[in-house]
Simulated assay, not measured.
Amino acid sequence: MRRVIFNQKGGVGKSTITCNLAAISASRGLRTLVVDLDTQGNSTAYLMGRETALPEDAGTAPFFDQVLSFRLYEKDPLEFIVESPFENLHVMAASRELENLQGKLESRYKIYKLKEALEGLESEYDAIYVDTPPALNFYTRSALIAANRCLIPFDCDDFSRRALYELLDNVAEIRADHNPELTVEGIIVNQFQSRAKVIQQAVNTLREEGQPVLEQFLSASVKVRESHEHCKPLIYLAPKHKLTAEFASLYDALMSH
């Protein structure tokens, strides 16, 4: 299964959700790949460590750079992937070089190359998770075209709710024009606070409208910050924490579909 985690709004927990779901997948014995397309590289840092020196010829930027050039010998997509410190969990890392490549990739219409690569990698991996930039750009469109399922983090404020409608329209357009397999697997309520009326109202409004809000909420917790600081997803840092259990419940619900 190829899942993309997407929201055009920043700070909604895309990388946190991507990495924690992928880490649970890996901890359950599934060979799991995280593809980081965000130039900020938050998923890369979270899984690989901020001080880890990654090979210059590995990652999403070298992969897309190869796409732009004709070569007699092309590297297999596997060669752009590195192992993380966690068993069964691999990463195609992001870098700032993605910014420099974007214009060239758009002008030469390389929008289907990621799909071709990830389809080929499905023989090597049981699960693939793609983290995207907080914008509808070339990399996000590539990810939506390459994926089977789309997960949308939602951080429970009215501004996010209004932006969600445009996001859903954009996903529907990608599905109609490029990828009929793509389905919105669900909206993930993140940073949930059960006592906050505004949050409850926002979630209830989405449900009343028939939006695909998942039943499994992710609570607000300082443990996420600790997890980022230690570069360890929650299943490894705090396996018995409440939020870890919520991620596991979310993962199980997604796998049961």
Rank of each mutant, 00 (worst) to 15 (best):
90 H>T: 01
35 V>I: 15
62 P>K: 07
32 T>C: 04
116 E>A: 12
84 S>Y: 08
37 L>E: 07
119 E>M: 11
124 E>K: 08
45 A>E: 05
70 F>W: 09
43 S>N: 11
36 D>G: 12
51 E>P: 00
77 P>M: 14
96 R>I: 12
27 S>M: 14
109 Y>V: 13
26 A>H: 09
76 D>N: 13
16 T>Q: 10
88 N>I: 09
29 G>C: 07
128 I>K: 06
78 L>H: 06
120 G>E: 10
32 T>Q: 03
69 S>H: 10
101 L>F: 08
119 E>R: 12
62 P>E: 01
36 D>N: 00
51 E>I: 02
126 D>A: 12
27 S>P: 00
58 A>C: 14
113 K>Q: 14
78 L>F: 03
30 L>Y: 08
27 S>Y: 12
69 S>V: 12
87 E>W: 10
102 Q>F: 00
105 L>V: 11
15 S>H: 07
114 L>E: 06
79 E>L: 14
40 Q>Y: 14
60 T>S: 15
12 V>T: 06
94 A>K: 03
53 A>D: 13
13 G>E: 13
56 E>Q: 13
20 N>M: 09
114 L>V: 08
52 T>Q: 12
11 G>C: 04
68 L>V: 06
66 Q>P: 04
42 N>Y: 09
111 I>H: 00
86 F>R: 03
109 Y>D: 15
61 A>S: 12
118 L>K: 14
124 E>F: 13
28 R>S: 08
127 A>P: 00
127 A>I: 01
19 C>V: 15
45 A>P: 00
125 Y>I: 06
34 V>L: 08
89 L>A: 12
20 N>Q: 05
61 A>G: 04
120 G>Q: 11
119 E>K: 15
12 V>S: 09
127 A>Y: 07
112 Y>R: 15
26 A>K: 06
102 Q>C: 00
98 L>I: 02
65 D>R: 12
83 E>V: 02
10 G>F: 04
111 I>Q: 11
127 A>L: 14
35 V>T: 13
125 Y>E: 10
30 L>V: 00
89 L>V: 10
27 S>A: 15
25 S>G: 14
128 I>A: 11
11 G>A: 01
91 V>W: 09
97 E>H: 08
131 D>G: 06
93 A>R: 02
45 A>H: 02
28 R>A: 13
31 R>P: 00
113 K>H: 14
37 L>R: 08
131 D>Q: 10
106 E>N: 07
16 T>R: 04
